[in-house]
């Protein structure tokens, strides 16, 4: 058992035993060891289900946003990775989450693996994933097995991560992991997209958004998409976004989401991972982050004292010259 996992259990157990929270949100094993899922623990004697490993991908701060807590006034304990904490900071910057009602356990992160990439290496179902040092072993239902170097199957946003340690936490599950000295963002695959011609970009976007089924998993999994249950994408008053499911309307729907979370979204990739048809939504948000950084030098969710880029206006803000 990793030290971080033990510490998470200890902190969660104490918070529950001392009645500081009504429930604690962490990660636990899913149907089998090949996946981790959100865990909601209500009693101190149930904390042993909590796990921490490179499959703990869910950004649990999504369960803090308006109308998610059950009951609505619950006091909630929650685990955050570095990227998750940036979405939490973004929510706190706008008072969208009540600081007094949450207890935050920060978990320094070494990168999360992209389970879908592993899955595609097999026709059969992956039923077990185990870790040994930097080696990840995946096994299927028929017993086929394959080793991967962890670095080869981590998410793009993990590979380019500059903030592996949580910004905001009441307690930490471990000492911070080493951070890069140069915090200049790396944009990963977005630069490949930018190199395309406008026609190629159109084609790529059309190709990506053609299969969208408008299930709203992206919207609902997004921690900073706070009008989620009142979404303009569904509203008929005003009827701004067409309800027809086609490439153009699908893209429009995602563009609306992208603009609405701009300045809050650190591109944690929760939308991307929730998408059942694997649309690379993360790229849209990453692109918006790059624009914000290039124009304003702004990075979302890195300081409690700051306001999101679109909530402030300075006379010397660049306008339309980019």
């Amino acid at each position: 058992m990793s030290d971080r996992q033990a510490k998470i259990r200890e902190l969660a157990g104490a918070a529950l035993a001392e009645d500081r929270v009504d429930y604690f949100i962490g990660w636990k094993q899913g149907i089998n060891s090949s996946e981790a899922i959100p865990a909601f623990v209500r009693n101190a004697d149930e904390v042993d289900q909590l796990v921490w490993n490179p499959l703990s991908h869910h950004n649990l701060t999504a369960f803090l946003k308006r109308k998610m807590p059950d009951p609505p006034n619950a006091r909630i304990g929650v685990c955050v990775k570095g990227c998750d904490s940036r979405t939490l900071v973004a929510l706190l910057q706008e008072d969208l989450v009540d600081k007094e009602r949450i207890y935050v356990v920060g978990v320094p992160c070494d990168g999360i693996i992209d389970r879908r990439r592993v899955e595609k290496e097999f026709a059969d179902e992956v039923v077990s994933i185990s870790f040994s040092g930097d080696t990840v072993t995946a096994t299927t239902r028929c017993g086929d097995s394959k080793d991967f170097a962890k670095g080869d199957i981590t998410f793009d946003h993990c590979n380019t991560c500059r903030y592996p340690n949580p910004f905001y936490a009441d307690d930490m599950a471990a000492d911070p992991v080493p951070e890069p000295e140069d915090r200049t963002p790396m944009w990963g695959t977005i630069e490949e997209f930018e190199a395309l011609s406008p026609a190629e970009k159109d084609a790529k976007l059309a190709d990506a958004f053609e299969t969208c089924i408008r299930c709203f998993a992206c919207i609902h999994a997004c921690p900073v998409c706070v009008c989620w249950d009142q979404c303009v994408n569904r509203s008929r008053r005003p009827a701004l976004v067409g309800q027809r499911v086609d490439t153009k309307e699908n893209l429009m729907f995602q563009m609306v989401h992208m603009f609405h979370v701009a300045g809050r979204c650190p591109s944690c990739g929760a939308c991307d991972r929730a998408c059942p048809v694997e649309i690379p939504l993360y790229l849209l948000h990453r692109k918006m982050n790059k624009e914000l950084y290039d124009m304003l030098g702004f990075e979302p969710g890195v300081s409690l004292d700051e306001k999101p880029a679109f909530q402030t206006f300075k006379l010397d803000d660049p306008f339309g010259e980019h």
Partner: peptide
């Protein structure tokens, strides 16, 4: 208890071979 980790999206219904509920709108 069971719905705590539900994010209230519609994925399960849209990938389902027999969930059939729908909306009607004018465009």
């Amino acid at each position: 208890d069971l719905s705590m980790r539900c994010i209230s999206c519609g994925t399960c219904t849209y990938v389902c071979p027999n969930c059939y509920c729908f909306n009607i709108t004018d465009e």
